[in-house]
Structures are given as structure tokens and as C-alpha cells.
């Protein structure tokens, strides 16, 4: 990581614990401003937005620190970046002026077909080169630091040349990006494909973790899936706590998209997250 960026991200104060903003939460977030440290907004909800929608975004911005999170940069697409989409994301990021913004380590479109969700790429040197090239293009347009999120995957490619951890590490180092570590995605993958998440943490550059995502997993048949529709379970809090112990994270976001519980439950989860993040800080204080 370049010294400048390193300094910038290390001196960035922690944003605390926030939620992924959904329209259903609008009333509750304003009523509970003091209990929500920041909001992550899905950039895609505001692209080509009408003035009243942009007005609503402005209102959020006046009351909370905002972090933009986009879904379709498709950084792993071998056909390259969709410049029109990039331009729209850039406009939102410039409007918000956040300390960082994020997208995923995946591809979402190819050959005119939109897949509709985040699809994995084989872990090959060629795929690394594609990410490096696409990310360079994004960085040349948007100066705000981009951080990259690990996804859940349901298909594996026997043609992969390296494990996921090495793939992520290589891309982060070659692009000098931070990591948005989704601890739920990591836990789900570890359960579906039988690997140890602690070992995975040993293998990735934890000093590059900037932000966390967390939410409960859902079972579908014999697999766990990322439906974002459940309360965070004990096992995922365990991953969360471990990362907090080993990394200086700058913020954690609860990503709830469905089966919305009473808002108190959301606030309780934020409190738990905050508690785990403070343990890290307290430890640092006592170590000094």
C-alpha cells in the first residue's frame, strides 16, 4: 500500500457500527440517529435518480456519514468496465464525499447478459490481471479509495490456479485496495465448502481490512446462503470478534435486506458490534 494511502486509511477515525440503508428503515433511522453511527447506501438505488430521490439522499447525508456501496462495477468482467455505469457511480461518490466506497470481487455481466447478482470468477492469473486492469480504470476516474468485498460463491472452478485467499491477497496488493471483509460471506463459504475460516484469516492481509459486513445466514437445503434475512448467529459473531482482535477496522455494517425484524433488534445487533469493536480499542489502550 502506498504510504499516502496507508496514512490516510490508518488516520481515518473509525466510523463505528452502521446499517445498510433500506427504504423500509427510513423512519426508524431518523428516530434513532444517536444509535446508528453511519449508513451504507447502495449506489445503484440513486443512479439516474429523480430530484426527489436525490433530495432524500441529501437529507440522509445531512444526518449521517454515508458510505456508497455499488453492485455492478463488475470488476471481474473480462470485457472491461461499463463506462456509463462508472460515470454514474462517480457522480454519487463525488456528491457524498465519503472516506471510501466499495464494490465486489466478482463479475455481474458478460456478452450483453446481466446475471442479476454477484458471480464468482475462477481464481487464475488471468482473472487477477482483469481485476487489476478494471480497478485501475475505476481509480483513474474516482479518487476516493475503493475497497473490495469478498462474495459468497456456490460454484467452484476446477480450473482455478490458487485458493480464494491468495487470489484476494494478490488483487489487494497489486491494486493497493482495502478489503471490505464480509464475515458472513466468509463463514457461509467455510461451511459450504468445509474450510477453516481462521486459516483463511491467517492467509489474507488483515492490515488491509477497512470495513466489515455482517448479518445472519440462511439455510437452503444442505447449503447456507446469503439471503440477508436473519439475525446474526453466534458463529458469525465469533468471526467478527476474531477480525476485530486482529485488525484495525474502520467501520462495520449490518446488511439486512429481508424479513425485517422490529428495529430494536437491528439496534441490538449494532450494540453488539460496537461492543466487539470497543474491546479492540480497550485492548490497545491497556497495551499502551
Amino acid at each position: 500500500m502506498s504510504e499516502d494511502r496507508n496514512q490516510k486509511q490508518n488516520t481515518q477515525k473509525s466510523l463505528g457500527a452502521g446499517i445498510g440503508f433500506r427504504e423500509q428503515f427510513r423512519g426508524s433511522v431518523f428516530l434513532n440517529q444517536d444509535k446508528i453511527d453511519f449508513l451504507e447506501i447502495t449506489t445503484d438505488h440513486y443512479l439516474d435518480a429523480k430530484p426527489d430521490k436525490l433530495g432524500a439522499l441529501k437529507l440522509l447525508k445531512e444526518h449521517f456519514p454515508l458510505i456508497p456501496h455499488s453492485l455492478e462495477l463488475s470488476l471481474g468482467s473480462a470485457e472491461g468496465i461499463d463506462e456509463e455505469y462508472l460515470e454514474k457511480v462517480a457522480e454519487i461518490v463525488e456528491f457524498i464525499k465519503p472516506p471510501w466506497f466499495s464494490d465486489h470481487l466478482c463479475f455481474t455481466r458478460s456478452g450483453g447478459v446481466k446475471i442479476g447478482h454477484l458471480a464468482p470468477v475462477p481464481y487464475t492469473k488471468e482473472a487477477v490481471r482483469v481485476f487489476v486492469k478494471n480497478i485501475a480504470q475505476v481509480k483513474s476516474r474516482i479518487k476516493t479509495p475503493l475497497i473490495l468485498e469478498n462474495i459468497t460463491y456456490l460454484v467452484r472452478f476446477p480450473s482455478s490456479e490458487m485458493p480464494e485467499s491468495e487470489f484476494i491477497k494478490t488483487i489487494l496488493e497489486e491494486t493497493d485496495c482495502g478489503l471490505l471483509l464480509d464475515v458472513t460471506n466468509l463463514y457461509i463459504n467455510s461451511q459450504n465448502f468445509g474450510f477453516c475460516w481462521r486459516k483463511f484469516l491467517d492467509e489474507i492481509p488483515l492490515e488491509r481490512v477497512v470495513q466489515l459486513h455482517f448479518v445472519g445466514s440462511n439455510r437452503h437445503g444442505k447449503r447456507l446462503i446469503d439471503a440477508h434475512a436473519n439475525k446474526t448467529e453466534r458463529e458469525i459473531w465469533e468471526v467478527f470478534a476474531e477480525v476485530c482482535k486482529r485488525s484495525e477496522i474502520k467501520g462495520a455494517v449490518l446488511e439486512r435486506d429481508a424479513d425485517f425484524p422490529p428495529f430494536e433488534e437491528i439496534l441490538e445487533e449494532l450494540e453488539t458490534a460496537r461492543g466487539l469493536m470497543k474491546i479492540q480499542n480497550l485492548k490497545k489502550v491497556s497495551a499502551v
Binding site: S77, A78, E79, F107, R109, S110, G111, V113, K114, I115, G116, A119, V121, P122, T124, E126, A127, V130
Partner: peptide, 16 residues
């Protein structure tokens, strides 16, 4: 197989 060709075919396989 190039990644581009593979992704073109995979995108169709996933959605069709």
C-alpha cells in the same frame, strides 16, 4: 479458453 469467452458462456448458462 479466454476468461472473456468463458464468462460470456457462463452468463448465459446461469440465466438460461
Amino acid at each position: 479458453m479466454s476468461l472473456l469467452e468463458q464468462q460470456n458462456f457462463l452468463a448465459r448458462l446461469y440465466t438460461d
